[in-house]
Design a protein around this nucleic acid. Sequence first.
DNA 1: ACAACACCTGAAGAGCTATTCATATGTGCA
DNA 2: TGCACATATGAATAGCTCTTCAGGTGTTGT
Lengths: 120, 120
Amino acid sequence: MAALDGCVVPEPDAARVAATRDRLVTPDEATRLAELFRLLGDPTRARLLYALLEAGELCVCDLADAVEVTDTAVSHALRLLRTAGIVASRRAGRMIYYRLADAHVRMLLDLSREHLKETG
Amino acid sequence: MAALDGCVVPEPDAARVAATRDRLVTPDEATRLAELFRLLGDPTRARLLYALLEAGELCVCDLADAVEVTDTAVSHALRLLRTAGIVASRRAGRMIYYRLADAHVRMLLDLSREHLKETG
DNA sequence: ACAACACCTGAAGAGCTATTCATATGTGCA
DNA sequence: TGCACATATGAATAGCTCTTCAGGTGTTGT
């Protein structure tokens, strides 16, 4: 791409860009990070996760009730979150209880609320 | 929420009620949070943001070079991030320098990398 | 065994999104 | 003023995603 040649005159910028490219997340890592955020970036899934953040552990039917969507939609959503390692599940009889997978996910959800508070 | 039906406190004191209300996420708030995550949940935008996280401040053409996408695509991506308050811009001559908008965004990006490292 | 229940899965269509092309705006320089 | 550069914008299409529907699996109680 010729954008670099036209934009960066041989000046401090060139060194900065080179240094940036070295420390840049690899395409693979960026893709996986985007995938993580993409999974949080759906209203239904986000509401499920924040419900779990507050309640700690909920079964599918309780989640469907809390988020006000069909249990099928909840099940589809939870499958994506589960296979991505964002939530974990535990069977108790015929019910399956879901919870947030780890502390990082909890911190992520908390931090984003902070951002929302300050930016309106 | 059905899971909390048993948690009836006869005389809720004001402080705890306030704290609880502060902790609760309304459907509207969850939807806005999902919108925030959705914007981070695209490979191009994610790579732009991580480039800014590491470089501090970059112009559009430098970003296009770093992420290896056309400057038009970068411009479109930055517009979404800018209007959402995720990045901020500063004009210097004919170039426009972009940076992450606030510390919460930076922490968010850092935290998600931690999550990725630990979960594989 | 059977029925009821809680949950899961595959397929399909409506709706949304990201990229591209073409064009426009704004800035610096001669 | 005219030109080159850096970035922004609008429109359109290809590709993706969420929801729904229909049916499937596993569990409990009778």
